[in-house]
């Protein structure tokens, strides 16, 4: 294939990736609006968002095709994959500690029961022992 044909293939692939990424970003927005609970909304904010961003960055890389900027896009994708779960974890933990999580909406809630067990055990003991970290 000639260079021109490779260019067209890359453009088409880039368009497909951009469309997929935008669709996933839209699904993330719908999810965060529709889901019933704080923890469920975090799912919407993590998974489709990360993959959507990766697809959009792949689309951009296919359009740019050369140059140092492509490496920075790899970096952005790696950052997102590393940091999105951490942000979701911290938000979830803060939600538990400030009482924003409604146990009645969950089928099973082992974290609350474990926390209550730990608190009961700590009240039984005289010393102040924090089981968390």
């Amino acid at each position: 294939m000639t260079t021109d044909q490779w260019t067209t293939v890359a453009d088409v692939a880039s368009a497909v990736c951009l469309l997929g990424g935008a669709f996933l970003a839209f699904a993330a927005g719908v999810g965060v609006l529709r889901f019933p609970d704080l923890l469920a909304r975090m799912h919407a904010g993590t998974k489709p968002q990360v993959l959507g961003l990766i697809l959009v960055l792949i689309g951009l890389a296919l359009r740019l095709r050369s140059g140092g900027a492509v490496w920075a896009l790899v970096l952005v994708a790696v950052f997102q994959m590393l940091t999105a779960p951490v942000a979701a974890h911290m938000v979830g933990r803060a939600g538990y500690r400030t009482g924003k999580v409604r146990s009645d909406l969950l089928v099973v809630d082992e974290l609350t029961s474990d926390q209550e067990l730990a608190r009961a055990r700590d009240h039984g003991r005289a010393e102040d022992d924090d089981p968390r970290d």
């Binding site: 970003a25 993330a28 919407a44 961003l53 959009v56 359009r63 140059g67």
Partner: peptide, 29 residues
């Protein structure tokens, strides 16, 4: 916390929008 998640999604959508603009105009800067 709900608002935090929502605004995080808005920021990521901004990233996607800037990337879309860069892809269309083939700007690397």
């Amino acid at each position: 916390l709900d608002r935090t998640i929502a605004l995080d999604i808005v920021v990521t959508t901004m990233i996607a929008a800037v990337a879309l603009y860069a892809a269309v105009n083939r700007r690397a800067d």
